[in-house]
Design a binder for these strands. Structure first.
Lengths: 154, 154
DNA sequence: GTTTGACCTCAAGCTTACTTGAGGCCGTAC
DNA sequence: GTACGGCCTCAAGTAAGCTTGAGGTCAAAC
């Protein structure tokens, strides 16, 4: 992940940000930002020199994309998560609230999956279930049921 | 993820499992099992017909691989996690305990990252920080510092 | 005036994690 | 016997998520 040479970081008169500055502020590579735009996850306008200009509210969107990446949520799912958040103007408080609630739900699901696994692994340590007969990890029942994949009971 | 035609599930006299049966029991595709073997994450012996035979303790290993996948841990990291767990014989209670502790650590880290993000997102909802001036998500400080990527404070 | 740096486009390449396809072996079922 | 199912190998293909490279524009610095 060689990051792009950091852009010039200064205040623009009109308060819009160039791609280099956005990259520096969000930690996302310039190439990644262009890629996200291609996917429709973010948007930019162009200045008189055809260079991308980002409104400040886009920083938050990009921050959320980075977050999602970190916890393994695929970019496609983000389209859905961002469905009600406008790209062309700063989202209203209400719009962000709604979206944030959606995010919280996702995060909570993720956290609960991990917590279940922690508990099950603890059980494995505790019982030393070498026989596999009663291992919660291999026979997690519906706690881990996820459309057709993963361990299952026979 | 089109799963392989489910293998014949019956008790083998010698208590070893064919690849189809392992696939059915773990939920991992037959092709995935061969792939994991190529990576050295699992191992098998061959019968007189050159078909893979898995000892039962491999089921657990495969279950852990599936778990890792689900929470977004790359397969390469699993080599490390499995470093002290033998492939050629059923791991001892102690060996599994050690490995399990490593797993718990990983899971806990993951969970804490998510919890931090949840807290930060809650802050965003609470403060309605449209100005971005004080948004914890964009300026999470060292709580999210991770070798060079992610949001950062300017 | 030419060099440098930030930006542009478009196409190709890369990594991870598998899946699919072609061609073949073997044992049981009809 | 031949059809079928399960397995084998090896090579190629796929999808996600980007990165890299080639070739070009423009403005400011030296």
């Amino acid at each position: 992940m060689a990051s792009y040479p950091s852009g010039e970081v200064r205040a623009t008169p009109d308060d819009w940000l160039g791609i280099g500055e956005v990259s520096a502020r969000t930690g996302a590579a310039v190439s990644a930002l262009r890629f996200y735009e291609e996917l429709g996850l973010i948007a930019s306008e162009r200045d008189e020199r055809n260079q991308r200009r980002y409104p400040r509210h886009m920083l938050r969107r990009i921050a959320l994309i980075s977050v999602a990446k970190r916890i393994g949520i695929p970019l496609q799912d983000l389209r859905e998560a961002f469905a009600d958040v406008p790209l062309d103007r700063p989202p209203s408080h209400q719009e962000w609230q709604r979206a944030s609630r959606g995010w919280k739900r996702r995060l909570e699901e993720r956290r609960q999956t991990i917590e279940r696994l922690e508990a099950e692994l603890t059980g494995c340590i505790g019982c030393g279930c070498l026989s596999m007969k009663a291992c919660a990890l291999l026979n997690p029942g519906d706690a881990l049921a996820e459309d057709g994949v993963g361990p299952r009971r026979l």
